[in-house]
Amino acid sequence: MKKIPTASIEETTGRILDELADLPGGLLPILHRLQEEFAYIPAEAVAIIAHRLQLSRAEVHGVISFYHFFRTTPPGRRTLYVCRAEACQAMGGKRIEEHLRATLDVDWHGTTADQSFTLEPVYCLGNCACAPSVMLDEQVIGRVSTARIDALIKLAGSE
């Protein structure tokens, strides 16, 4: 992952704040926009947000760390969310979890050595009648088998 230049972070964060700083309770929308831009929330942005919203840096950081969705380090090129919840477990989701951790050689929240995938647990994708389910970036995939997972990884990893 190439380091994002500080100037670019400052510029983008400023632009997002110009647009959203006055939104009532706007911190989550601001953080979402930042993560859409950079795939994570860079530390440099936290100070800028805190200053503009008149919060302490600790407060902004406290919000970021509360929510599973926000990340403070760059993810791999693709993020694979694996549903660990009950309906998927009832359909053998555990096998998918174990297979993925072994195949990608990472634990939860980890990124593969070649930076191609980040593996995230998720507790239900609302796809419970087509279990087991995973989500690749924003694409939900149902009725997965280990074979389908292998094909998916091969395809997505080569893109």
Binding site: A85, E86, A87, Y123, C124, G126, N127, C128, A129
Partner: peptide
């Protein structure tokens, strides 16, 4: 927020 696993009626 439809957080309950096993549910998708809202979606």
């Amino acid at each position: 927020d439809e957080g309950d696993s096993g549910t998708f009626a809202d979606r």
